[in-house]
Every structure is written in structure tokens, then in C-alpha cells.
């Protein structure tokens, strides 16, 4: 059974169509790359799965149930921005997550934070942006869920930190869970991907197994992407 299903989903804002008749299934146990140029609709696609937006037409189901409290319990979302209360300390944030998510593994989070030498009583305000992003990633990956959705986890991060993030993603998500990563920095991430989905102008133009694509075209996913989107705005 696939985890997340988009049925004929379209999203319009006023007169602009951001997503056009999306039919998509996210399978279990795979790392999937949602790739596309800026403005393709990746973030919108993701926000729809998290009930931050409602589809203009069509609907989305999680494990064949409509989105709701049950789906939010089993989806861990890492947005592009810092969504934490910056006036709190790391410890208070851990308390918060533990309080509201019953599948939050506090011990794991503290272990990962320890690896980064982060003091639990630091106020989030006082952390650098890079550190804040790593903290959020740790919080998200410390939840035992079925689907991790990471929206541009590598954006604005220096190359050294990128390795840490990719490694953390690889070694820390639950076995049997799926990870949906949206990014336009493909070269760094493509070795991790099982499947790729190409999104352009609100439409899915490609969905395939990563190695299968490589065998077919004898090039990297990055190359395929560049060729495909050469004429994108």
C-alpha cells in the first residue's frame, strides 16, 4: 500500500495555477526526490500533504484515509524556514515535542544534539541559522513516523554541513519509512535517491527509479535535470 496518494490535485491561487492535475503515489520504504526548478510547485505539493494548504480540486489521502490528525501523527515535516519559538531554549523545545508527539524519541534527539556539541540550555535566538536548521532536522528525524518530508533541507547550508545533513538523513530515518526530499541541489543528493519525480510548471513530467534512469540515459540525474529544464524560467 502506498503511503501518500494525490488524486487529481490542482491548486490555484487567484488566476495562477500552481499545480495542475497531479496524480501521484508515494510508496513505502523509499527515498524519493522531488526535483524541479524554483517555482515548479514543489513546496505547494508538500504543503498540501501537511494540510497547510487545501486543494482547489482533487483530494489527498494518507494510507487511504483523508488527511487529519492521524496523518499528521505519522508525517514529520521539515519546512524551509525555522518554525520554532525562538524565545525558547533547546531543552524547552524538546519538552514541547515530547509533549505533543507521542512518537518523539527524546533520547535519540539528545544523542544527536550531543554529537553537535549543542548545549540544551541555549536559546534558539542565540544559535546561528545553520545550527537552527540542524536542530530542526534532528527534531524531525527523532520522530518515529512513516513519512518524512524534507523541504529543501540543503538550502543555504555550507558544504561541510551538507555532508552532516545527508549522513544524518541516511542513518536516522526509521526502517520501512519513506523520505520525500524536495530540492534543486541534485548532485549532492542523487546517490541517496531510490526514485525521482520531476515537477515543472505544476505538472509531473517524470517519475522513475533513479538507477533505471541512469541505465537508460547513461548520465546522472543532475544531467537529466539540466537538460530537461534548460528552457525553464
Amino acid at each position: 500500500m502506498s503511503l501518500l496518494q494525490y488524486h487529481h490535485v490542482s491548486k490555484r491561487f487567484g488566476n495562477t495555477t500552481v499545480l495542475d492535475n497531479i496524480n501521484l503515489e508515494i510508496p513505502t520504504g523509499k527515498i524519493i526526490g522531488l526535483l524541479g526548478p524554483n517555482g515548479a510547485g514543489k513546496s505547494t505539493l508538500i504543503k498540501l500533504a501537511n494540510t497547510l494548504l487545501t486543494p482547489t480540486t482533487g483530494n489527498i489521502t494518507f494510507q487511504n484515509q483523508p488527511l487529519g490528525v492521524a496523518s499528521k501523527t505519522e508525517i514529520a515535516y521539515l519546512p524551509e524556514r525555522t518554525y520554532l519559538d525562538k524565545t525558547r531554549t533547546i531543552r524547552q523545545t524538546l519538552d514541547f515535542f515530547q509533549n505533543f508527539y507521542h512518537n518523539f524519541d527524546r533520547a535519540k534527539a539528545e544523542r544527536l544534539l550531543d554529537d553537535l556539541d549543542l548545549q540544551l540550555d541555549t536559546q534558539i535566538l542565540h544559535m546561528s541559522k545553520g545550527m537552527q536548521e540542524k536542530l530542526q532536522l534532528i527534531l524531525v528525524l527523532s520522530r518515529h513516523v512513516k513519512l518524512y518530508i524534507l523541504d529543501e533541507p540543503l538550502g543555504g547550508i555550507d558544504p561541510a554541513a551538507r555532508d552532516y545533513i545527508l549522513d544524518t538523513i541516511l542513518t536516522n530515518f526509521d526502517e520501512g519509512a519513506s523520505v520525500l526530499i524536495s530540492t534543486h541541489l541534485i548532485a549532492d543528493i542523487e546517490k541517496l535517491l531510490d526514485e525521482v519525480i520531476f515537477l515543472q510548471n505544476g505538472k509531473i513530467i517524470l517519475q522513475d527509479d533513479a538507477d533505471h534512469l541512469r541505465a537508460q540515459t547513461q548520465t546522472s540525474i543532475d544531467e537529466i535535470f539540466r537538460k530537461e529544464f534548460k528552457n525553464a524560467r
Binding site: N50, T51, L52, G68, V69, A70, K72, T73, I75, Y77, P79, R81, T82, Y83, L84, D85, F100, Y101
Partner: peptide
């Protein structure tokens, strides 16, 4: 605000 990304994705109606 940005916090809404957390509020609305909490498992709460």
C-alpha cells in the same frame, strides 16, 4: 507567522 508551520502540523484539530 513561521511558527504556523509547526502549529498546523501538530497532530491537533
Amino acid at each position: 507567522s513561521d511558527e504556523a508551520y509547526l502549529t498546523y502540523t501538530l497532530p491537533i484539530k
